[in-house]
Design a protein around this nucleic acid. Structure first.
Lengths: 104, 104
DNA sequence: TCTATTTATATCATATCTGATATAGGAAAG
DNA sequence: CTTTCCTATATCAGATATGATATAAATAGA
C-alpha cells in the first residue's frame, strides 16, 4: 500500500464506507483497511475492560505510545502489532478470526 | 517478536507443536507464529488453484520472489504481505477469518 | 481548584520489511 | 539434451515500522 493511501487510517472518526469513495483504493486495499480498523476498534474495547494501555504495552514489550497509536488506527501501526496487542488481551485465534470475518 | 525467534519460521518442514518446545516462545508468540504458518499454507493452496506466483505478484505490485517467500513462511514476510497476497487470490474477510479461527 | 493517572501526539535513531535483481533448481515438453 | 516455465534462495538499497523519549491533553478524584 502506498503511503498516501495509508493516510485514510488517520481519518479516525470517519464513517467506514466513505473512505474508499474518497481515496482510490482497490477492493482489496479497502478490505485490508477495514480489517485494520476493525482490529483497532476491537483492541480498544477489549483492553479497556481489563487494563491500561501501559499495562498492555508491558505485556508485549512495547510502549504505551504504540498502544495508543494502535487503538487510534495510526498509519504507522502494522497488522503484526495489532494482532500481537489483541493476543495480549487474551484473545484466541477464534476471537481474531471472528473480528476479521465480521468485516464483510 | 525478536529476530532470533523469527528463525522458527524458517523451519519450514517442521511439525507444528514442536516449535514452541524448541524455542522459548510465550503462548501469544506461539499463536502468532501458527497464524502466520496457517496463512502461508492457505495462500499456497489457494494460489496454486488459479495462477502462478508471478501472476499473483503482479496483482499486488510485488515480485514473484516475495510470493515464494510468503508461501514458504520466510521470516522476512510480514503479516501484512500475507494478508494482501491472500486477498489477491479473491479471499474474503470471512475466508481469512476462518483460516485464523482454525488455528486454535 | 490541585494532583495523579491515563491517554494522545510528535520526533527520531534503529530495526525490520520491502521491491528489485541475480541466479539456480526443478519439472514438463519437444 | 535443450528450452521453457515455474519456483526457490541470496543480497541489497531504500522504505516503512519500531521502541524510546518528550510533552501535552484529557480524565478522575480529593
Amino acid at each position: 500500500m502506498e503511503p498516501s493511501k495509508q493516510e485514510l487510517l488517520e481519518a479516525k472518526g470517519w464513517k467506514i464506507g466513505t473512505v474508499s469513495d474518497f481515496l482510490d483504493l482497490t477492493p482489496e486495499e479497502t478490505i485490508l483497511v477495514e480489517i485494520k480498523l476493525a482490529l483497532s476498534k476491537s483492541l480498544k474495547e477489549r483492553r479497556q475492560k481489563m487494563m491500561t494501555q501501559s499495562e498492555l504495552a508491558g505485556k508485549i514489550g512495547t510502549s504505551e505510545t504504540r498502544i495508543a497509536k494502535a487503538e487510534n488506527s495510526d498509519a504507522s501501526v502494522s497488522l503484526e502489532l495489532l494482532i500481537r496487542s489483541i493476543l495480549a488481551t487474551g484473545a484466541t485465534p477464534k476471537d481474531i478470526g471472528q473480528i476479521i470475518s465480521d468485516v464483510g
